[in-house]
Design a protein around this nucleic acid. Sequence first.
RNA 1: GCGAGGGUGGCGGAACUGGUAGACGCACCAGACUUAGAAUCUGGCGCUUUGGCGUGGGGGUUCGACUCCCCCCUCUCGCACCA
Length: 831
Amino acid sequence: MTTSQGGGNRYDFKAIEEKWQGLWNDNETYRTTEYDARKKYYVLEMFPYPSGRIHMGHVRNYSIGDVVARYKRLRGYNVLHPMGWDAFGLPAENAAQKNNSHPAVWTYDNIEYMRRQLRQLGLSYDWQREIATCNPEYYRWEQLIFLEMWEKGIIYQKVTTVNWCESCQTVLANEQVIEGACWRCDSPVLPRQMNGWFFKITDYAEELLADLDKLQGWPEKVVTMQRNWIGKSTGLTCDFQVYGSEAKISIFTTRPDTVYGVTFMSLAAEHPLIAPLIAGYEKEQEVRTFVEQIITEKQRKSNEEEPEKKGIFTGRYCLNPFSGKKIPIFIANFVLMEYGTGAVMAVPAHDERDFEFARKYGLEIVPVIMPEGVTLIDRDMEQAYTGPGVLANSGLFTALPSEEAKQSIIRYAVEQHFGAPHVTYRLRDWGISRQRYWGAPIPMVHCDHCGVQPVPRHELPVVLPQDADPGSSKCDPLHQRPAFYTTTCPVCQGPARRETDTMDTFVESSWYFARYTCPRFTQAPLDREKASYWLPVDQYIGGVEHAILHLLYSRFFTKVLRDLGYLDIDEPFTNLLTQGMVIKDGAKMSKSKGNVVDPHDLIATYGADTVRLFSLFAAPPEKDLEWNSQGVEGSSRFINRLYRFIAQNRQFLQKKAASRGEPGESGRILHRKIHQTIRRVTENIENNFHFNTAISAVMELFNTLSAATDPAARDRAEAHIAREAIEVILVLLSPMIPHFCAEMWEQLGNSGSVEQAPWPQFDAKAAAEEQLTIVVQVRGKVRGRLEVPADIDDDELIRLALTDDNVARFIGGDTVKKTIVVKKKLVNIVV
RNA sequence: GCGAGGGUGGCGGAACUGGUAGACGCACCAGACUUAGAAUCUGGCGCUUUGGCGUGGGGGUUCGACUCCCCCCUCUCGCACCA
C-alpha cells in the first residue's frame, strides 16, 4: 500500500517534503558564514540529550526556533542556527548496561537516528556546525578551560557534605536536588562526606545578580527565580564573647535593629565550637547525645514537612556586645550550618522561629521594635512581630526608626571593633565532581610528593577510555580502571594517580552555544573573532525547567570565559523564550502516564508541515500546549485547502500581467485584507512570537481570497490581486510550513525560491478601510451599527446615529446629555 | 509561609495605549454532492422566557471595564526553618 495521497484532492506531502529536504541538504542552503554585509542574528534552541527519539517537546521547541530562523532570514539577517547533542550523561550508562553495549555506541546510534528525525521536520540548521559533547574534540577544550580556571583560582577541591544519590551512585549539585530528591531519578538524596571539585560560582554571585537587570529580554519569572536562587542578604556579622572563656561566637543577622531583643543564642548542631564549649561541663554527655541525634535526623529527612523545633541548653552563656547582657547558649535543630555562620542571635519577639522556640522552652521575650502606635508586651504576644517600627529598650538607639537603626547599629559595631557589615548569599559553589564513567574526565593528577597537579596542556585531551579493562563492565567508573588512572606525575615523574571523577554534564552545556560559532577551531576553545561576531545569542528558546540550572551556569561560564579573554560579552542570551510543555489529557506526556504521542507517527500520517503548523497554531509558545488529534486534522485540512485552491485556480492565478483596470468591490476588499494581514503577521512575530495569531490572520486572508474568487468572475480585473494574495500567503507561511510553500511557490512559476523572496511590505494606505462600521451605544450599550465612509466628520456621525430607528427607540423621551465619539470606532449617547 | 503567573463559549484560544467580547481553529447542528460513507462545499453555533444576562466572586472609578483600583476565592509553577 502506498501512503502517498495523490489524486489531486490532497497534496503529496511525502514527495514534496523529501524533495525539498533533499535540495536543502544537497545545496547546503542553510550553511552560514561570518562577515556578511547583513546584520547577524543568532537563534538557538536548547540542544537535546540524545535519548533515543525525538518527542513532542522537541518538535515544539525546534518548530518555534525554526520559524524564528526562517523569518529572520526573510527579513534580511545573516542567521546562525545550529544544532548539536548534549551527549554525556547517566541514561547512556544505564541503557548500555541493559543492552550489554557501550555508552558511546548507544549515544552515537541515537544521535544518528534523531538527526534523521530532525531533518524530516525540515529544520533549517547549519549541520556543518553540529557538535556532540562526548566527542574528545569538544571536551578537550572544556578540559583546557578547566585548567585555565584552575590557574585563575576559580576551581578548588574540598571535602564537604555533598548531596549523594544512592541510585545514581553519584554526587549532585545543589541545583540538582529537587525537594530533597534527585532531579533525574527522584530517589532521596543523602548527605555524605566526600572530596570533590568545585567551581567558585559564588565569586560571581554579585555580578550574576546585578546583571539580571540587563536581561530585559528574559521572562520576569526566570529573572525572579534566579534572583531568589542567588539569595543575597545584607546585614551584620558580630561576635558574642563566651562567658568565662576567650572564645567568641560569630553571628550573622539581617536585623541588627533587633539586637537589644536578643535573649539567647542558637547554634547549629554541627557548629565547631560546641565540643570545646561543653567539654568538662556537667551536661556534656547529655548534650553530645542530643547533637548526634539531631545530625542523624537531619540526614534522614527528605521531602517531609518541617520537623518540630527542638533544642538543648549547653550550660554556657555568652555576652551581647551591645547591651552586655548575659544570655544562654542553645543548640537548635533548625539552625543551618551551611548558611551565615551557623550561629544565630535569637530574638523571639521579632522572629517567628525564635518565638516558637522561646515559648516551648520558657525563654525570655523582649520586644524592642514597636509598630506605629502600639506598645508590645511580651506576655500578650501571640506571635513574633517581624515588621518595621520604632526601637524601644535599645540603649543609644531607642526611638530610632528600624531602617535607620540598622545602619547606626552596624556603624557602632564597626567603631567598637566587634562587628562588620556583611553580605551573604544563598548560592553555593558549584560541585562538579561526578563518580560516573560517561562524562568528561577532569584533567588533574594526584601525586604523593607534589600534591594536585594539572595535566600538561599538550597532553590534552585526557580521553575517556573506550574499552573495558579485562573482566569488568564497559561502564565501570574511572576509579575502577587502573589502566586509566595509573600515570606519572608531570612534575617529579614519580608514580601518580589521575583524577577519576568526571565533570557534571552541565559543564558541557554551559558553553556549547559559544563553540557553535567556531565548532572546528583547532587552536583554542574559541575563535575570539568569530565568537565576537556571533555572540551573544539573540534569541534562546527552551523549556522553563532550565530556569536555574542551565541558564545560571551558562551565565557564569560566559563571565568566566570573558575573564579568561575568550569572550567580550557579559551575558550569553539577549532574549529568552521559555516555551510551555506539551501536554495531553491535562498532564505532561510521559511513558508512565501512557499519554505519549510519537511525532514519528504523526509525520508519517500528516507530514512535517502539518505537525509544525499545529504545534505553532494551538497555543502561544510560552503557554502549555494541549495536544489534540482533531486539531492536527484541522491544520492538515487548512494546508490541503490551500493546495486545492492553487491547483484549481492555476490558470487564473497565472494571469498576472493580463489584468488591468479598476478592481471591483471584492478585489478592493481582498487588496485591503492583504495589507492588513501583512501588518498583523509581522507584528505578531516581532512583538512576542505569537505564531498562533499570525497563522489565524493568514487563515482569514485565505478565507477572503476563497470568497473573492468566484469562478464565474475569473477573468475580471481581480486576477493580479488574487495572485498577490496567494504569494503573500506563501511567503508569510513559509517559515512555518517551509516545504509546502517552497513547492507551491515553484509551481506558480516564480523564479527563485520562496526563501529568497522579500518579506512583503505593509502599505498603510492600502490597508485603510474606506467604509467603517461605527457602533452606536446608548448609555454604554450597543444599540445600533452604522456603515459610513471613513472620512465622515463627528457632527454628521452623531446626526446619523440619532436617526437610527433602534437608537431612537432606546433614547425614547429622554434628553441627550452628552455624546462621545471615538474615532473610527463608536458613538456613545448619554441620556 | 514567601515569590511569580493564570482563571474568557463544549474545547484550544482572540481582543491594539479602557471603546462592537468570543477573531481563527476544533467539536457540534443543518443543508449540498454521493447508492452509501469518507472527503469536500455552503450556512449556523456564548446563555436566554427577545427583554435581558454574560470574561472566577464581590465592591469601586468611568459615558463606557476581560482591560484600571480595593477585597476575596481558586489553579499552576518556583523557593521553602536562609537568621
